[in-house]
Amino acid sequence: MRLSGQVCAGRGLASQHLATAPQELEHWLGAPPVAGTLNLVTNRPYRLNTKTAKVFDEDHKMVWPARAGDSPVLVYRWPGCPLHVFELISPVRLRDALGLADGDRLQVHLPAGHLARVSASAWVVWALLWGLRTGRYYRSLGSYPALAEGLGLRLGASQ
């Protein structure tokens, strides 16, 4: 399965979140990951299958093996992650390796079993919370992303 997302600048939090499992991430990637992640937002929701996830940090964080270009990556999500947000962990700095800048599109190749169905009700909730604001998750300095993430979690429209 291929999904396409837009590259965007992050908030600089991934390095802290991922510091709890450097050996596991290296084992799953086949090489040490670079600091930080590449952030992608899609224009529609995608739920990843928790049954195929690699879990760490006492089951609070999840990754799924995938590919971006020729690079192996781990798609990183956490409980409450909006369904259009993808953070890619890689052994190379993907922006440099693939010549990416904010606003560029990138295709990620996920095995079909890594995707799960997004229910009709989750689509509706996602559309109300994020439909016209997909890029706002990383750009907003206000409280909207945290509020929408919490509502999405409670209403079944988040990872």
Rank of each mutant, 00 (worst) to 15 (best):
R2I: 12
R2L: 05
Q6P: 03
V7W: 01
C8M: 13
G10L: 05
G10C: 09
R11L: 12
L13W: 12
A14I: 01
A14L: 06
Q16P: 02
H17K: 09
T20A: 12
Q23G: 06
L29P: 03
L38Q: 03
L40P: 05
N43R: 07
P45A: 14
P45D: 11
Y46N: 01
R47C: 10
R47G: 05
N49W: 00
K51N: 11
T52A: 10
K54G: 09
E58T: 04
D59C: 12
H60F: 08
M62N: 01
W64T: 03
P65R: 12
G69S: 14
V73T: 06
H84V: 08
F86C: 05
F86L: 15
L88Q: 11
I89V: 13
S90L: 06
P91V: 07
V92Q: 15
R93H: 13
R93V: 12
R95G: 06
A97R: 10
L98F: 12
R105L: 14
Q107E: 11
H109K: 02
H109M: 05
H109R: 10
A112S: 10
G113Q: 15
G113R: 14
H114N: 15
L115R: 06
L115N: 05
R117T: 07
V118A: 09
S121M: 03
V125Y: 00
A127K: 13
L128T: 09
T134I: 11
R136P: 01
Y138M: 12
Y138F: 15
L141C: 10
S143K: 12
S143C: 08
A148V: 00
E149D: 11
R154M: 11
L155W: 08
G156Q: 08
A157G: 09
S158T: 13
Q159P: 05
